[in-house]
Amino acid sequence: MSAAHQLVVLIDPVARRIDGESVRIAKDVLCAGAQAKICWPQGPEEFARALARRGGRRTVVVGDDQALLRTVTLLHRERELDRGALALVPVGAADSLRLARSLGVPMGAVAAARAVLEGAGRRLDLLVDDCDQVVLGALRVPALGPVRARSASPLGAGSGSAGWGPTGSGPAGWGSTVWGTARSLVRTLVRAPAPVAATVAHRLRVEADGVLLSDLDQPVAGVSVASVNGLAQVEVRGCAGESARASARAVTISGPVGGFRYGADAVVGGPVRTRTWTALAGAWELVLPT
């Protein structure tokens, strides 16, 4: 029997807790179509041990992006990514499956489990940093999204009708007309404007294969890096909307004394003073629908 029909199925405990029914369905479909060894690791150490004992079986992860990332990172550090294709049955909240969706993994337990049984392995690139941490999707610096700025009301946030007294104050019938109209007019005049996007400048030095794209004296809005066609595609976005792009095997980003934070897949890293990411072409294999 081929490795594609001998499976070791690692079921992430988070997936069991969030959606036990999808886990059960995936397990039933996989067991019906292949010889499957089901593993129920209770934590990272048990997960690593089960992965190390997989033998010649194809590894199937039932879980979210974090579970997939954990698996690829462990295999990379053991230098075993080339020992066969991985497969994923995505189970979790929608915002925890963005990476899986971007990689082309079917959403839904039945469709994903059938793809495990009937699909084919596809070689994919990744980025690896100088601490041996992998990036399967996108890398962003800084890690946080754009800051929203709001102008303060002259009367203070949430003042509303505070300080204006009760509606019925003043002569009978007068408070409900004159004072009500005045309050409405003032609220209209002092209402805070709608939130506007504020461009936040960051001091970053960016080098692509030794070529300087930006230095610490040139504030930028952000940097993004992804591995495409075996190379790191880097974009440095300027504060005025301009951008610089390059393709390189390695990208080094340095920050100010306090360091910088970065978002890699679903993980926030840092702060670090400097970090280098290297693109590895076709470094791992993922089973996807044919």
Results as ranks from 00 to 15, higher is better:
Gln35Tyr: 10
Ala36Phe: 02
Ala36Lys: 01
Ala36Trp: 01
Lys37Tyr: 05
Lys37Ile: 05
Cys39Asp: 10
Trp40Lys: 01
Trp40Tyr: 12
Trp40Met: 06
Pro41Trp: 13
Pro41Phe: 13
Pro41His: 11
Gly43Ala: 02
Pro44Val: 07
Glu45His: 08
Glu45Lys: 11
Phe47Pro: 00
Ala48Glu: 11
Arg49Glu: 11
Arg49Asn: 05
Arg49Gly: 04
Arg49Ala: 10
Arg49Ser: 07
Ala50Gly: 05
Ala50Trp: 10
Leu51Ser: 09
Leu51Lys: 05
Ala52His: 06
Arg53Pro: 03
Arg54Thr: 13
Gly55Ala: 02
Gly55Arg: 03
Gly56Ser: 10
Arg58Lys: 10
Arg58Glu: 11
Thr59Pro: 05
Val60Asp: 03
Val60His: 04
Val62Ile: 14
Val62Glu: 10
Gly63Asn: 12
Asp64Cys: 12
Asp64Leu: 05
Asp65Trp: 04
Gln66Gly: 15
Gln66Glu: 15
Gln66Asn: 15
Leu68Lys: 12
Val72Ala: 01
Leu74Val: 06
Leu75Glu: 11
Glu78His: 12
Glu78Tyr: 07
Arg79Ser: 04
Arg79Val: 01
Arg79Trp: 01
Glu80His: 08
Arg83Gly: 04
Arg83Ala: 14
Gly84Val: 10
Leu86Asp: 00
Leu86Asn: 00
Leu88Phe: 05
Leu88Met: 10
Pro90Trp: 03
Pro90Gly: 02
Val91Asp: 09
Gly92Lys: 07
Gly92Trp: 07
Gly92Tyr: 09
Ala93Ile: 08
Ser96Val: 01
Leu97Trp: 01
Leu97Met: 06
Arg98Asn: 14
Arg98Val: 07
Arg101Asn: 05
Arg101Leu: 08
Ser102Arg: 15
Ser102Phe: 11
Leu103Lys: 00
Leu103Gln: 00
Leu103Cys: 00
Gly104Met: 05
Val105Gly: 03
Val105Ala: 02
Pro106Thr: 03
Gly108Ile: 02
Gly108His: 05
Ala109Asp: 00
Ala109Gly: 01
Val110Pro: 04
Val110Met: 06
Val110Ala: 07
Ala111Tyr: 07
Ala111Lys: 14
Ala112Ser: 15
Arg114Ile: 03
Val116Thr: 08
Val116Pro: 12
Glu118His: 10
Gly119Ser: 08
Gly119Asp: 12
Arg122His: 13
Arg123Phe: 14
Arg123Ile: 06
Leu124Met: 15
Leu124Ala: 15
Asp125Thr: 01
Leu126Ser: 07
Val128Tyr: 10
Val128Glu: 09
Asp129Gly: 01
Asp129Lys: 01
Asp130Glu: 13
Cys131Ser: 15
Cys131Lys: 14
Asp132Cys: 11
Asp132Asn: 12
Asp132Val: 01
Val134His: 02
Val134Asn: 00
Val134Pro: 00
Val134Ile: 05
Leu136Arg: 04
Gly137Arg: 06
Gly137Lys: 06
Ala138Pro: 02
Leu139Pro: 02
Pro142Asn: 11
